[in-house]
Design a protein around this nucleic acid. Structure first.
Length: 348
DNA sequence: AATACGGGGAG
DNA sequence: CTCCCAGTATT
């Protein structure tokens, strides 16, 4: 039996029951695929259900506000996915009359849809002959066929997508694509794959040459930037100070607090820091240290320090980015995880 | 070709 | 800690 047939056979008796598996609605599949980009199934599942409930079709999605979308997205990360989804939903309503496209050619033009997602949606929704190449596929193919070219080099990407394209010939695209990904996720896992019970063990290059733990090859080591975010929590009556984050940095368009970023941990005896703070909030300011947190992202470690402030005066003309809003309204806004956690814990 | 973009789980 | 997850956009 061929590699593909074995994979499909394995899939049919081992697949998980997932809420996006029993549909060919391209909108629903799009929803699931965007959410699952760089996101584990278990983490994405509740978000998928929540989004589908709030936006049962693309027209409903298109009429949402960005704040609404980002609020639902809160905690999932890579927020550009949410912003791009809204853009795309509106684009589909405006240009395709709310009929979500199913062809690779049209899908690949959509914002937030790359080669993987276009292949996934087109194959799952209309059985188009497009091979998905995601992290799972890279791993399975590199191990089984013994491809040592780095999966994130230019040549590597080309080799893997060529191979994937050949393998899907004569296969049922929707089933086979899902099968190889599920196989990678459950059987041919990154760490301690279940080779002892593997249906394609005999043909597997990596198993035969004891290179399971060396494949796939991946270049890159991300360098991590350290940052110090000093947040100021200012509450007067039923209003709180907030600020929307701008493009060019993490958490674009999400709302946090007035912030002074420093090159290192600040000390309360640092004149430079206190001068900055007074410049922002006035001379009569009362400053109190709240909790500190370490927030770890892929490319940066953010040391977050919260301060409570009282008797502050903000010049809203000089600092148009800062606003004072009702606390109840503030809670409805989308926040970075670290801010959302703080609100939940400290602001009633 | 490199880098930014979140957050979390597994080992 | 490190790795990596149903990747994409930008430089």
């Amino acid at each position: 039996m061929s590699f593909q047939s074995e994979i499909v056979k394995w899939y049919l008796s081992n697949k998980r029951d997932l809420p996006w598996r029993d549909t060919t609605d391209p909108y629903v599949i799009w929803l699931s695929e965007i959410i699952l980009q760089q996101t584990r199934v278990e983490q994405g599942k509740p978000y998928f259900l929540k989004f589908l409930e709030n936006f049962p079709n693309v027209s409903a999605f298109a009429s949402a506000s960005e704040e609404q979308v980002l609020k639902l997205w809160q905690g999932l990360g890579y927020y550009s996915r949410g912003r791009n989804m809204l853009y795309t939903a509106r684009y589909v309503v405006a240009n395709y009359g709310g009929q979500f496209p199913t062809s690779y050619e049209q899908l690949i033009k959509l914002k937030g849809v790359g080669s993987y997602t276009a292949a996934a949606i087109s194959s799952f929704s209309s059985n188009e002959q497009q091979a998905v190449v995601d992290g799972n596929v890279y791993r399975v193919l590199s191990r089984y066929f013994g491809i040592e070219e780095p999966i994130n080099s230019n040549l590597g990407q080309k080799m893997f997508s060529e191979l994937a394209k050949e393998l899907i010939i004569d296969q049922e695209p929707a089933i086979y694509n899902q099968a190889i990904m599920e196989f990678g996720a459950l059987q041919c896992k990154p760490k301690s794959p279940v080779c002892s019970e593997c249906p394609v063990q005999l043909g597997c290059y990596a198993f035969k040459h004891k290179k399971i733990d060396q494949l796939p090859v991946k270049l890159k080591k991300v360098k991590v930037r350290k940052r110090w975010f000093n947040y100021f929590v200012g509450i007067t009556g039923d209003e709180i100070l907030t600020k929307q984050r701008m493009p060019g940095d993490v958490w674009q368009h999400l709302y946090d607090f007035p912030l002074i970023e420093t090159e290192e941990e600040v000390s309360m005896t640092s004149n430079e820091f206190l001068t900055q703070v007074e410049k922002l909030f006035g001379k009569d300011l009362e400053l109190k240290v709240l909790e500190g947190k370490k927030h770890i992202l892929t490319h940066q470690i953010i040391y977050v320090q919260f301060f409570a402030i009282d008797n502050y005066i903000v010049n809203f003309n000089q600092h148009a980015e800062i606003k004072s809003v009702k606390i109840e309204a503030f809670k409805q806004l989308p926040h970075p995880k670290i801010i959302g956690d703080f609100i939940e814990k400290h602001i009633d």
